[in-house]
Design a protein around this nucleic acid. Structure first.
Lengths: 216, 216
DNA sequence: TGATTCAAACATACCTGACTGTTTTTTAGG
DNA sequence: CCTAAAAAACAGTCAGGTATGTTTGAATCA
């Protein structure tokens, strides 16, 4: 068993007492990881409580002890996925060297890395399901807004020199987000690395020139 | 024994004898339309045979007479949807006036119209489901390839002056397709017409300049 | 013409399997 | 001991498939 390092989910405040029983939090995370893996491997629709508990390595009864219903589990999984997406993205951005010369291309690479990761696949499954599942939508859409805002703020922080470009920055971000997400979704079905690389290079050049033009 | 009975499914050629029984083709189309409507309204995952037959206005048994299994129905629905998408798209392109001055923007508008139509929503449902449903994938992917090729050929026919640009044309088409599909998928969740319009205008300008630059 | 025939179109009932949620029972920790 | 975690057994629902029954309508021949 790993040590008490793991207070993960909603333990915002300090718990000086890492109860032994608090180790059930580890089981919770185990279950939530299994749920996300199921979204990726089976798709949201074919994900059942039995499959999740099986993947997590415990019985359905045990899982229902931690999450009394499927919708409770789904809700927790959505929030867990959101947290992991945010953490992974911010972490990757923070790894960009401060003296990076081509920050635009570095930023593109970071986002592309995220979009081609399993986390985004899981998110996309949820997003599609939410279109016709209002209960899921109520849980998911706030997370979407939160991620989009964090994405926008991160980009603004990474490119302070775009500050004065105003509208151009918004247009550039819109272009980047829509193009790259479209690429990512197509990439799920047919991976063509060369074609993706060409488009990303084009996008980087394009963003450069948008910055130059508006910085006269 | 019936004389003209044979070619029921592929009545591509004129059948002077559209005997009454042949009107079952109408019922088939009714069912397939209902199936696609269900994909749009409920999503692929929540579409059941009962829901489809109900939407079509007949009993499940009656439907099972025309399509002996669910997968047979799905297969027919995929092909039907593909046909309707192709027809609608080609028809819309053919309606672009020959003397249209801004053919690029007209082409963009036609494709955007398609991407925001229910047919594309239904297609996207199928595409997502196919990722984790290989049986569906086997049916869907050939249709995808067919549509993509038709899209590419249509674009080449619409813009003959790009003929000599070679790679630039391919890049422009890649950009257009990925960007607009990304926009369309985001558009399903949150419709922001103004933002879409801005991006489409930008894309049109961008394509213009790509053409100019390579036509020196 | 009109009665008979026969297959297709349509409908009803039931069976099986899977999924969710509840309840009950066992195991382990403090 | 006593409480929480884990497992197992049970029940209700719903989906898809099969089997069988009913209607319709066109073709055939007296």
């Amino acid at each position: 068993m790993p040590s008490v390092k793991e207070n993960a989910t909603t333990e915002a405040e300090e718990q000086p007492l890492g109860w032994q029983a608090q180790k059930s939090a580890a089981t919770r995370n185990l279950i939530l990881d299994a749920a996300i893996t199921c979204f990726i491997d089976l798709g949201y629709a074919m994900t059942t409580t039995a499959k999740i508990s099986n993947k997590a390595g415990l019985s359905r009864g045990a899982m229902l002890h931690h999450f009394p219903s499927k919708s409770a589990l789904i809700q927790a999984a959505v929030e867990y996925l959101h947290r992991r997406r945010l953490d992974a993205f911010r972490d990757a951005v923070s790894r960009i060297p401060a003296d990076e010369t081509d920050r635009i291309r570095a930023g593109i690479n970071v986002y592309w890395q995220h979009l081609t990761s399993p986390l985004f696949v899981a998110f996309h499954e949820l997003a599609v399901a939410a279109r016709t599942d209002s209960e899921l939508g109520d849980i998911l859409y706030p997370a979407v807004d939160s991620f989009d805002q964090a994405w926008y703020e991160t980009a603004k922080a990474l490119f302070p020199e775009w500050e004065k470009t105003g509208d151009v920055f918004d247009l550039a971000m819109d272009l980047t987000q829509n193009l790259m997400e479209g690429m990512a979704i197509n990439h799920m079905q047919e991976k063509d690395e060369q074609r993706a690389e060409r488009l990303l290079t084009f996008l980087a050049k394009q963003l450069e020139s948008m910055l130059e033009e508006s910085n006269i």
